Every structure is written in structure tokens, then in C-alpha cells.
Simulated assay, not measured.
Amino acid sequence: MRKFNFSAGPAALPEAVLLQAQRELLDWGGRGCSVMEVSHRSPEFTEVAETAEQDLRDLLAIPQNYRVLFLHGGATAQFSAVPWNLLGGGDRVADYIRSGHWADKAIVEARRYGQVNVVASSEDRGFTYVPGPTSWRQSENAAYLHYTPNETIGGVEFDYVPAVTCPLVADMSSNILSRPVAVEKFGMIYAGAQKNIGPSGLAVAIVRDDLLDRALPGIPRSLNWKVAADAGSMDNTPPTFAWYLSALVFKWIKGQGGVEAMAEQSLRKSSLLCGFIDRSDFYSSPVERGSRSRMNVPFTLADAALDHLFLQESKAAGLLNLKGHRSVGGMRASLYNAVPVEAVEALLVFMAEFEQRYA
């Protein structure tokens, strides 16, 4: 019997997708072999790749002047790829919003290749809020502005898209496909697959055509978006199984009603959990209201000495991976698209019973 998985990533996948992959693992489409055992250049896998791209285009209404890339290395590789690909157009200054752990990682990498201007930071209150645009200090001629719409560890999420004149770059690893996105407002969007798309090891990138010729000299071939775009993401052997599973997830999201349905469900799940926490004297949220993530909900217990017992008993109750990140502590429930409302309802029952016993 499957349990409810609140892992921050690699995260839960839709059960229907896992069951289909299980059925096809040894005999994919009647071919007598696995999808992992066929050439990525075969007509059969080319169809998977093309269908995956079209389904993602449909889900996010991606304009035709954007390329969709399926890349190696997850989002972390894109921390380097972004400056490599965008700082060669002249001005080597990049603007970054510092909103937490993953924004910090991106900033460290960008400083290897050019000057970074931190437009705004929420460090002053422990990265517990989204910095508002009134406090920004933007560069006059930035090559791009990078931000992290959802911080998985801190549990903060932007409720707006920054308005900038330079290309806007977003690391949407933990909230992509959870609500509609106006892609035309962005120069580039990237996302590690292992939260709302598929298994780890794959990153999806959406790049506007005019940004494919701005790379720094000497850019590694494996990080060059133009090389990937020209080769249909197959300059070398791609992570085919991750691509295949992602294609199944895109179909599943379509079947659920698309990103509009995911947005409605995300709001319902996070509202249930955050509302319960706010009504409790035993649990509390470290994130300021108005900045709370719909995807990742951190919370603490009134007595941290009970943390281990909470994790022990929640696991026994079939509620998995609720431990907070090691840098933050406490608990964290990640509510990605594949986590059903029933999982949150079960978590609330457990939290209420735990509070009654130990408060």
C-alpha cells in the first residue's frame, strides 16, 4: 500500500504515471523492450520527445518564438548555464534577487563569470518573506534579472512577476506547472524535473529565440542552449527515461484539467494546512503571511524536543518525509501536483491528534 509522500524532491509522482511506467517497463508499446533500451534517435523515441514538447507548450501556452529544451544536470547546472549563455552580449552585469538558499546558489555561480548586482534581499528577516519591488536597486544595463519564484527550503513564494526591461530569468523548479504562467514576460525559464515534472537528472528550459546568441566565449558545449536547441536537445544522449516519465506527467496534468486545475488544487491544499497551523498554538509558521509558498509549507512545533517523536509517529501513520531541511529545522510538507488533497487531510488529522496528546 502506497503512503503519502511529502518529500521536497525527488518528490511524489502521480500514481497513475507510475503504474503506466510499471506496465511498460519491460515491454514498451509492444516492442518487447524498455523505453530505456531504444535509441534516442529512433522514430519511436522521437515521437515521445516531440509529444512531450507539444504537451508542455500546450500546458503553459508557450509562444512559438521560444525553444523548449530537455537538458542534463537538473537546475543546478543551469545556475552556471544562465550566466554562460547570457553574459556574452556585451555588458557582463547580471541582476539577482536574493530570496533564500537556491537564489544564493545561483548567485555564487554567476559571480564566477561576471559582475552580480543583488537587486534586493530578504536576509534581514531570515529569508522569511519576498522582497517587494519598491526596495530594488536595479542596474541600468543588466544582461538579465534572475529570481527564484519559489524557495523550496524557506517556503516563500512570489505572488507577482517582476516587471523589468532586461530579460527576466526564473528558476521555477518547485512551482512550475502549479499555475498558469505568462511565458512571454520571461526571457528564460528553467526547472529541475524532480518536483512537479518527473524524476531527477533532467531540467526543462524555455528560452526566447533572441537569447540564443549571447553566450560567453568558451562556453562548455554541454551548457550551450543554442547547441541544444539546434540539436533538438539531442546533441548527446539525453536522460531518456526521465524524458519519457515527464511526458507521461504532462499527459496526466492535461487529464486533470491542466495547470488551471493544478492551481486550484494547490491553493486548496496549502490553505488547508496553513489555516490549521495558524489556528493552532502548538504549531507555527516561520514565513510571513503573503509570502507563503503553496508548494512547500515549513512549520515548527512549540517544543522542538518533540520533533523526533513527531517524525517517528508520522512515518508510522503513513506520512513520509516531513522533516525540515537541515539548514532550517522543524518540519516541511511539500504539496506538489502529485500530492493529493487526501494526503493533506490525513496530515491534519495526525497533527491534531499529536497536538492533543503532547500539547
Results as ranks from 00 to 15, higher is better:
residue 125 R to P: 00
residue 56 L to T: 04
residue 127 F to T: 01
residue 292 R to N: 06
residue 273 L to E: 06
residue 183 V to G: 02
residue 7 S to H: 14
residue 192 G to A: 11
residue 310 F to T: 04
residue 199 P to E: 08
residue 177 L to C: 10
residue 293 S to N: 07
residue 298 P to M: 09
residue 237 T to I: 12
residue 133 P to I: 07
residue 96 Y to L: 08
residue 285 S to K: 02
residue 155 G to K: 06
residue 36 M to A: 15
residue 280 S to T: 10
residue 204 V to I: 15
residue 184 E to A: 14
residue 168 L to I: 07
residue 137 R to Y: 00
residue 68 V to L: 13
residue 187 G to W: 01
residue 253 I to R: 00
residue 62 I to R: 06
residue 86 L to R: 05
residue 350 F to Q: 06
residue 141 N to V: 04
residue 222 S to Q: 13
residue 358 Y to W: 10
residue 179 R to T: 01
residue 33 C to I: 11
residue 49 A to N: 03
residue 165 T to F: 03
residue 33 C to R: 13
residue 159 D to A: 12
residue 296 N to F: 12
residue 342 E to Q: 14
residue 264 E to T: 15
residue 161 V to F: 02
residue 298 P to E: 09
residue 348 L to N: 08
residue 269 K to V: 07
residue 48 V to L: 10
residue 53 E to L: 10
residue 152 T to P: 01
residue 8 A to N: 09
residue 61 A to N: 12
residue 260 E to Y: 03
residue 248 L to A: 10
residue 320 L to W: 10
residue 282 F to G: 02
residue 69 L to V: 09
residue 163 A to G: 06
residue 325 H to D: 15
residue 263 A to E: 14
residue 151 E to R: 07
residue 351 M to G: 04
residue 216 L to G: 10
residue 171 D to K: 02
residue 41 R to S: 11
residue 120 A to V: 05
residue 224 N to C: 13
residue 98 R to D: 15
residue 338 A to G: 11
residue 284 S to P: 03
residue 18 L to T: 11
residue 25 L to W: 11
residue 182 A to I: 11
residue 113 Y to C: 02
residue 352 A to R: 14
residue 311 L to W: 10
residue 197 I to E: 01
residue 183 V to L: 06
residue 139 S to Q: 09
residue 214 R to P: 00
residue 18 L to Y: 01
residue 27 D to P: 05
residue 50 E to R: 13
residue 92 R to S: 10
residue 210 D to R: 07
residue 312 Q to H: 12
residue 232 G to Q: 03
residue 72 H to E: 15
residue 316 A to I: 08
residue 88 G to Q: 08
residue 3 K to W: 06
residue 6 F to P: 02
residue 331 M to R: 14
residue 161 V to E: 04
residue 106 A to T: 04
residue 140 E to L: 13
residue 69 L to K: 05
residue 222 S to E: 15
residue 258 G to Q: 05
residue 114 G to F: 01
residue 44 E to H: 11
residue 272 L to Y: 06
residue 60 L to R: 04
residue 314 S to N: 07
residue 256 Q to M: 13
residue 25 L to P: 00
residue 160 Y to A: 12
residue 83 P to I: 04
residue 212 L to R: 03
residue 271 S to D: 15
residue 38 V to P: 00
residue 255 G to W: 05
residue 115 Q to R: 14
residue 92 R to C: 05
residue 311 L to R: 07
residue 213 D to S: 13
residue 73 G to P: 03
residue 174 S to Q: 06
residue 52 A to G: 10
residue 244 Y to F: 12
residue 11 A to L: 10
residue 189 I to C: 11
residue 179 R to C: 01
residue 220 P to F: 07
residue 327 S to L: 13
residue 177 L to M: 11
residue 300 T to K: 12
residue 357 R to Q: 13
residue 251 K to F: 01
residue 34 S to D: 08
residue 123 E to A: 15
residue 87 L to P: 00
residue 183 V to M: 06
residue 353 E to P: 03
residue 36 M to S: 15
residue 147 Y to K: 05
residue 101 H to F: 12
residue 93 V to Y: 01
